[in-house]
Simulated scan of single mutants.
Amino acid sequence: MTEPRILLGEEALLQQLPALLHSRGKQRVLLAGGPHFLQSGAGGALRAALGPLLAIERSAPTGLLQASSLKTEAQQLSKGIDAVVAVGGGRSIDYAKALMYYASLAPDFFAAVPTTAGSGSDATSFAVVYEGVEKLSLAHPALLPNVVVWDETLLTGLPQRQRAISGLDALVQCLESLWSLRGTPASRALAWEAGSWLWKQLPYFVETPTSERAIGALYAAHYSGRAINISRTTGPHALSYYLTAVHNIDHGHAVALLLPVFLRYNAASDAIDAVLELLGAADAESAVQGWQRYLHELGVESSLSALGIVPSAVGDWLNHVNGERFANNPVPLDAVRLGRLLHQTLFV
């Protein structure tokens, strides 16, 4: 994996990024981002900083990123784009990647500017979109950003819950990468480094988001993305998309809810050992209890019952397991056993 050019600090977005675009001779920039950022003062400042380089601006739609709509939008992009700048959370950066994928755009300048520290989409070569409620993964080498901008001031104003849920997304990615069947020594090293920081430091970042902690969270989220770019994700992600698509649960919260289910589901596999070590747990049950305490400390619900979802939802849920992601899980799919563990763990 080629290392991206990382621009760091408060001057990274408005000074270093435009200067780098000029130095690389770029003339037509596609700016794609989340509506919250684009409508903010920071969004206006970025437009001004890009000046005549800004050729096209696109705002991510609300709701799920639907493949059919994205294909239409991509076909309407004008020709000659020689650089892409994607700004926002993981979903917004995925939006930019989807436009690139469906428009067959592969510029040699693709900058990702994360405004949350969670998905690691600034370090992956894939994007998540949907057909109805079914998740699709778009993958192409051109979707891997080669410029990453970390401006910690974009994170410090986020609500506490957003910081928590984004950080949980990154942490679960690390834990899944540790037990993934596609894991390698490199992916496990990346996951261990990022996951160790998040497990210890995320509560402090959620409570008091200092500049130093914000940079640490961006770093950890990026490394979680690099880890899953190799290993891909597993069981928790395979079941999470349904919760987001049908029950409108934020993705980071969905995977955090599902981790204890898979601590139990994967308990007999040796692949879980590194996860237990990182969490400081002697066995799977201790890890489940510790994880649920961790969510409570972060102010995040640890059961679906607390979110008003009833056990009868499990039957339909099991009809929407993402097989591509579950194939990386160390224990194969046993729908009956998995259903029992979903009831046991998430409906209390």
Results as ranks from 00 to 15, higher is better:
residue 211 S to H: 10
residue 230 I to A: 06
residue 218 L to G: 09
residue 224 S to M: 02
residue 238 A to C: 13
residue 256 A to F: 01
residue 201 Q to H: 06
residue 212 E to I: 05
residue 188 R to I: 13
residue 217 A to L: 03
residue 196 S to Q: 12
residue 258 L to I: 10
residue 219 Y to W: 13
residue 266 N to H: 04
residue 237 H to D: 10
residue 258 L to R: 05
residue 185 P to V: 03
residue 263 L to N: 09
residue 250 D to Y: 01
residue 254 A to K: 01
residue 216 G to P: 12
residue 250 D to G: 13
residue 221 A to I: 03
residue 196 S to W: 01
residue 186 A to Y: 02
residue 204 Y to W: 05
residue 263 L to W: 05
residue 260 P to E: 08
residue 256 A to Y: 01
residue 198 L to G: 04
residue 194 A to Y: 00
residue 227 A to V: 01
residue 184 T to I: 09
residue 188 R to C: 13
residue 237 H to I: 06
residue 263 L to D: 11
residue 233 T to P: 08
residue 197 W to C: 04
residue 264 R to H: 06
residue 254 A to H: 01
residue 195 G to I: 05
residue 262 F to D: 02
residue 197 W to I: 09
residue 256 A to I: 02
residue 213 R to W: 10
residue 262 F to A: 13
residue 234 T to N: 12
residue 258 L to C: 06
residue 196 S to G: 14
residue 184 T to D: 12
residue 197 W to H: 09
residue 264 R to W: 02
residue 206 V to S: 07
residue 222 H to N: 12
residue 199 W to A: 14
residue 218 L to Q: 15
residue 233 T to V: 12
residue 263 L to H: 08
residue 218 L to D: 11
residue 234 T to K: 05
residue 261 V to A: 11
residue 262 F to Y: 14
residue 226 R to W: 00
residue 228 I to N: 04
residue 217 A to R: 01
residue 183 G to Y: 01
residue 225 G to T: 00
residue 251 H to E: 12
residue 233 T to Q: 02
residue 243 L to C: 12
residue 203 P to E: 09
residue 187 S to I: 06
residue 186 A to N: 02
residue 195 G to C: 05
residue 184 T to L: 12
residue 205 F to Y: 15
residue 226 R to C: 08
residue 232 R to N: 14
residue 214 A to P: 14
residue 264 R to N: 10
residue 257 L to I: 09
residue 220 A to Y: 00
residue 212 E to M: 08
residue 201 Q to P: 00
residue 249 I to Q: 09
residue 230 I to F: 02
residue 257 L to Y: 05
residue 203 P to D: 12
residue 257 L to H: 07
residue 257 L to F: 08
residue 218 L to M: 15
residue 233 T to C: 09
residue 197 W to P: 02
residue 202 L to N: 07
residue 248 N to Y: 00
residue 248 N to A: 11
residue 242 Y to R: 14
residue 206 V to W: 00
residue 254 A to I: 04
residue 200 K to R: 15
residue 253 H to Q: 14
residue 196 S to D: 14
residue 256 A to T: 04
residue 208 T to R: 11
residue 263 L to K: 07
